[in-house]
Simulated scan of single mutants.
Amino acid sequence: MPSSSAPAAATAASKRIILVHGTGHGGWCWYKVATLLRAAGHRVEAPDLAASGADARPLRDAPTFEDYSRPLLDALRALPPGERAVLVGHSFGGMSVALAAEELPEKVAAAVFVTAFMPDCAGPRTRTIEELPLLDWMDSVTDDGHAPPSVFLGPEFLRRLLYQLSPEEDYTLSQSLARVSSYYVADQKQHPPFSADRYGAVSKVYVVAKQDLAMIEEYQRQMIASIPVAEVREMEDADHMAMLSKPEELAGHLADIANTYV
């Protein structure tokens, strides 16, 4: 199984890489990996999705999943003709990457799922979310009466299940920047499954974080088995926040993937 511990050399041809954050987070969570990839000569974007990170909109101003994902879709649409990007989705960011691959497959060189939801083409778009075997959300707060239904990942949930191997200063950063978000389950259910000839045809790479306590390895493997992937990579000592617990290793994988698929 291929692996790498450092970004590709800066002499490699520059690749376009778009890093997509997960629920409650923002582009800020990619700061270590983005820095490493840029130092290696790649063109890197880490957009804040709607009502996330530094995006000032409240969640109610992003009522649909497409509204939420639009900053990613807009970034792809803005690419020069003929240029493609490697999309990297973390956690719930995998759903936004899947949507982008469905709507703009010609702009996607590869879809990379870093311990992320990776939907298949056979069932409802939300099946991977609804089947997640996570029973204890601890101090997280949900509000089904909110429009859209909201979730706020609690500080103990983050510390114990997502950031347990990440540096303490990164957990502290999350406490300053975490925001209310949504999984948009009801909205996504209104759409048909992702299509085999669009999303399904895009090259996919899954990066397994073996120490993830929220999206456990067994479930990551279950998603991998549900749809063809070009490649599977493993990070032995990464928690859910792989970009913070093992940034050099993850940046190495992403640089190698970009050099392979673009």
Rank of each mutant, 00 (worst) to 15 (best):
T11C: 14
A9H: 05
E106K: 14
D237G: 03
S5P: 03
G93N: 15
T172N: 15
P148D: 15
H240T: 06
L158S: 03
Q220V: 09
M1E: 09
G200I: 01
A56V: 10
D139E: 04
E249Y: 15
P133Y: 14
S182Y: 00
M241W: 02
L104D: 05
A116F: 07
M223I: 06
D144Q: 07
A78S: 11
L73A: 05
P124Y: 08
P148T: 15
K246E: 11
D48T: 11
A8E: 08
Y183E: 15
S166E: 02
L153M: 11
D170I: 06
G22S: 03
F157N: 06
E168N: 01
G93Q: 12
E103N: 01
G252Q: 12
D67F: 01
M95N: 07
D237P: 04
A225C: 07
W137H: 07
C29I: 14
R43L: 08
P133K: 15
V44E: 06
G27S: 00
A12F: 06
V141I: 08
S174F: 06
S174I: 01
A46S: 13
S182L: 02
V151K: 13
H191E: 15
S69V: 14
A122T: 11
E106Y: 13
L161G: 04
A62K: 09
A178Q: 12
P148C: 10
E102I: 04
E45G: 07
G154L: 13
I216G: 02
S203H: 13
P81S: 14
P47Q: 04
D256N: 10
Q211A: 14
M223V: 05
A111P: 05
L161T: 10
G27K: 04
V114D: 01
